[in-house]
C-alpha cells in the first residue's frame, strides 16, 4: 500500500483507464493545456495528446451533450465539469439525455459517459460556487451517482465508472483533494452501488458519504474517547442506493444519525431515514436524526460559512441526543 492524495488517486484512475482502453477520452474546460483546474489531468495532454484530452469552450451544454453523442457512437468519454454548480447549465443533457436515452429508445443506445464534477462548500466562494447538490442528480432513474470519501474508493470507483456502460455522475469534493490515504499498488476496482462499513461500532450508526464520511469518522474517534462506539456506514453511491449495510447496522445499534454536506430538506438524510423507518421501524430506540447544511445560501464570510456547514461537533452532539 502506498499513501496517496485523493487527487493522485483520481488522476491515476483516469490515467490507467486511458492506457487500458483507447476509447476513453477526456473533454472539458482547461483539462488539457492547463492540466485541469484542480490539476487532476496534469500531464495527460502531453502524454495522451490533444485528440484524447480535449479542451472545450466554456459551454457546459455541449460539453455533456457531445460526451453523450460520442458515447452513443462508441467512445468512452469522461466529461469534466469545472464545478458541480456548472452542471446546472448541462442539466438537460444529464437528466433528459444521459439518464433517459437508453430506456426511451428501447435499449438500442448505451451512454457510457462519466461526468466528473467537483462540489462542496467551505472555500469562501460565495453561494453559487459552494453547493452540494448531489441529491438532485440522485433523483433520476437511469443515472448512477457516485461520490467517494477516501482515496482508495475514489480510485476503485472511478475505474468502475469509466468501465460502466451506464452514465455515471462522479462527484468529487474540492476540500478532499489533499486528503491522504492508503491506495493499493496493484490494479483494483470498487463496485458501484455497494455501501461499505468504514468503522465498526455497536452503539450508534452514522450514515454518510464523501466529505462527511471523514467528518463522521472524526466524530467516531471523539465519541470513542467517551466510550461510545459509532459504526460508520459510507454510502459511496447515491443511486442505485445500497441500504443493506446501513440497515444491518441500524438493526444492531437501534440508533442512527445521517450526515450530509448538502441541505437537510429533501436530502440524503430524508431518503435514508425513510428507508430505515420503512424497513426497520421496530428496531428504532430513538428518532433517526439528520446533520446537514443549514438552510441558507452559503455566505462568503469565512466564519459564517463554516458555521453553516456540518462539522465534527454537530455530529457528536447529535449522537448524544439519540443515545
Amino acid at each position: 500500500m502506498a499513501i496517496k492524495t485523493m487527487r493522485e488517486a483520481i488522476s491515476e484512475a483516469l490515467w490507467e483507464e486511458m492506457e487500458r482502453d483507447e476509447r476513453v477520452v477526456i473533454l472539458g474546460e482547461e483539462v488539457g493545456l492547463w492540466g485541469g483546474t484542480y490539476a487532476v489531468t496534469k500531464g495527460f495532454y502531453d502524454h495522451f495528446g490533444p485528440e484524447r484530452v480535449r479542451d472545450t469552450p466554456i459551454a457546459e451544454g455541449v460539453i455533456v451533450g457531445a460526451a453523450n453523442g460520442a458515447a452513443m457512437a462508441g467512445l468512452r468519454p469522461v466529461a469534466e465539469l469545472m464545478t458541480i454548480n456548472f452542471a446546472f447549465l448541462a442539466m438537460d443533457q444529464i437528466v433528459n439525455h444521459s439518464a433517459k436515452l437508453h430506456a426511451m429508445f428501447g435499449g438500442q443506445m448505451t451512454l457510457p459517459v462519466v461526468i466528473r464534477a467537483v462540489g462542496g462548500g467551505g472555500r469562501q466562494l460565495g453561494s453559487t460556487h459552494s453547493q452540494t447538490p448531489d441529491v438532485v442528480f440522485a433523483h433520476f432513474p437511469g443515472l448512477k451517482v457516485v461520490s467517494p470519501g477516501t482515496p482508495h474508493d475514489a480510485k476503485g470507483l472511478l475505474k468502475s465508472a469509466v468501465r460502466s456502460i451506464d452514465p455515471v455522475m462522479f462527484i468529487e469534493n474540492a476540500t478532499l483533494y489533499q486528503m491522504r490515504g492508503e491506495v493499493p499498488e496493484d490494479e483494483y476496482l470498487e463496485p458501484i452501488g455497494v455501501s461499505k462499513v468504514q468503522r465498526a461500532g455497536s452503539d450508534v450508526t452514522l450514515i454518510s458519504y464523501a466529505k462527511m464520511l471523514q467528518i463522521s469518522l472524526q466524530a467516531g474517534e471523539r465519541l470513542a474517547a467517551e466510550g461510545i462506539e459509532a459504526e460508520v456506514v459510507d454510502l459511496r453511491t447515491l443511486r442505485p442506493l445500497d441500504m443493506e449495510p446501513a440497515l444491518a447496522s441500524f438493526k444492531r445499534t437501534n440508533r442512527a444519525v445521517i450526515v450530509e454536506e448538502g441541505w437537510c430538506a429533501y436530502g440524503v438524510g430524508a431518503e435514508v431515514a425513510a428507508r430505515l423507518y420503512e424497513e426497520a421501524f421496530d428496531y428504532a430506540d430513538a428518532p433517526i436524526r439528520r446533520v446537514a447544511q443549514r438552510e441558507v445560501p452559503l455566505p462568503y464570510n469565512r466564519d459564517l460559512e463554516q458555521q453553516m456547514l456540518p462539522g465534527v461537533e454537530d455530529v457528536v452532539e447529535m449522537v448524544r441526543e439519540v443515545l
Binding site: 451544454g61 455541449v62 455533456v64 451533450g65 457531445a66 460526451a67 453523450n68 453523442g69 460520442a70 458515447a71 452513443m72 457512437a73 467512445l75 468519454p77 443533457q93 439525455h97
Partner: peptide, 8 residues
Amino acid sequence: PLATGMAW
C-alpha cells in the same frame, strides 16, 4: 450537441 458528439 448529440450530433456534435457523434461526429466527433
